[in-house]
C-alpha cells in the first residue's frame, strides 16, 4: 500500500486548498506516478482533476510536483520519487491553480508566444526545401525537443517572481531555437526584443530548469548563448 497525498482544490466547494490522503494498492509494482493517479481516479475518487494525454513523456500534459520536484508523472517511476512509502503530489508551483492538480498556464504560454516561436525568413523560398548542413541542423538539437510541459519555468524562482515579464527558461529555449536556426533571418529583430532588464536578464543561472527538465534539455545553457549574442550585438 502506497500512501498518496494529493493537493485538492475545487473553486466551487473549497474555501482553501487542502491535502487529501489516499491509500493505493500498487500490487507491489513500480508503477509510474500517472498510473497511481489513474488508480485513484478510477477506484477511489473520480473527481480528482489532472491533465494527461500521451502517457509516454512526449506531449507534456502531466507536469506535476512530486515529492517536491517537478517532472512528468507518466515517466516518473515510483522508485524514483517515493520516500518512506509516501508520495506527495502537488500542482506545478508558481502558477494559479484552476482545480486540484490543474494549473492555469496562460502566463506560461504568453511568454512562449512573446518570443515569436516560428521561423522568420523574408526571402522567397526555393522550389524545394531550404538547404541546411547537418552541422547547422545539429545546432537545433537540445532545443527543438521541448514539449512545453512547464516543469522548468515553474521551478525557476525568477519566473515565480516575474512570470509576466521574465520569459522564463521554456520560452527562452525556444527563442534560442530560432536564433540558432541557420534558416531564420530575423536574428537582429529577435535580439532587440530581448534587451530589456527582464526578458532574459532575470535569469541568474540558478539551473533549476536544467535539473528538472524531463527531456534532459538545458535552458540555462541556451540562455547563456542568448546573452552572448546580445552582448556581441550591442558592441
Amino acid at each position: 500500500m502506497l500512501q498518496v497525498s494529493l493537493y485538492r482544490y475545487s473553486p466551487e466547494s473549497d474555501e482553501a486548498p487542502r491535502m487529501q490522503d489516499f491509500r493505493v494498492d500498487t500490487a507491489g509494482k513500480d508503477l509510474m506516478v500517472l498510473d497511481v493517479l489513474e488508480l485513484v481516479k478510477s477506484q477511489l475518487d473520480s473527481s480528482v482533476a489532472y491533465r494527461r494525454s500521451c502517457r509516454e513523456g512526449v506531449c507534456g500534459s502531466d507536469g506535476l510536483n512530486m515529492n517536491g520536484k517537478n517532472g512528468l508523472a507518466c515517466i516518473t517511476p515510483l522508485s524514483e520519487v517515493v520516500r518512506k512509502g509516501k508520495l506527495v503530489i502537488r500542482p506545478l508551483p508558481g502558477l494559479p491553480v484552476i482545480r486540484d492538480l490543474v494549473v492555469d498556464m496562460t502566463l506560461f504560454y504568453a511568454q512562449y508566444e512573446k518570443v515569436e516561436p516560428y521561423l522568420q525568413n523574408d526571402e522567397t523560398p526555393p522550389e524545394i526545401e531550404r538547404l541546411q548542413t547537418p552541422e547547422d541542423r545539429e545546432k537545433l538539437d537540445g532545443l527543438y525537443e521541448c514539449i512545453l510541459c512547464a516543469c522548468c519555468s515553474t521551478s525557476c524562482p525568477s519566473f515565480w517572481w516575474n512570470p509576466d515579464r521574465f520569459i522564463g527558461p521554456a520560452g527562452l529555449l525556444q527563442s534560442y531555437r530560432f536564433l540558432a536556426d541557420s534558416r531564420d533571418t530575423a536574428t537582429e529583430e529577435r535580439l532587440s526584443k530581448l534587451e530589456d532588464p527582464f526578458s532574459v536578464f532575470r535569469c541568474h543561472g540558478i539551473q533549476n530548469c536544467a535539473s528538472v527538465c524531463p527531456k534532459g534539455l538545458n535552458p540555462t545553457k541556451a540562455i547563456g548563448h542568448i546573452k552572448s549574442m546580445l552582448l556581441s550585438n550591442s558592441n
Binding site: I128, E129, P134
Partner: peptide, 23 residues
C-alpha cells in the same frame, strides 16, 4: 505530397539532413 512537405520545411520544421543539406 512533395509540395506539402516543402511548405512544412519552409515553415521551419527541423528535418534531419543529408550531407548535401537536403531532408
Amino acid at each position: 505530397g512533395p509540395e506539402a512537405i516543402f511548405e512544412l520545411e519552409h515553415m521551419g520544421l527541423p528535418f534531419s539532413r543529408t550531407e548535401s543539406g537536403r531532408i
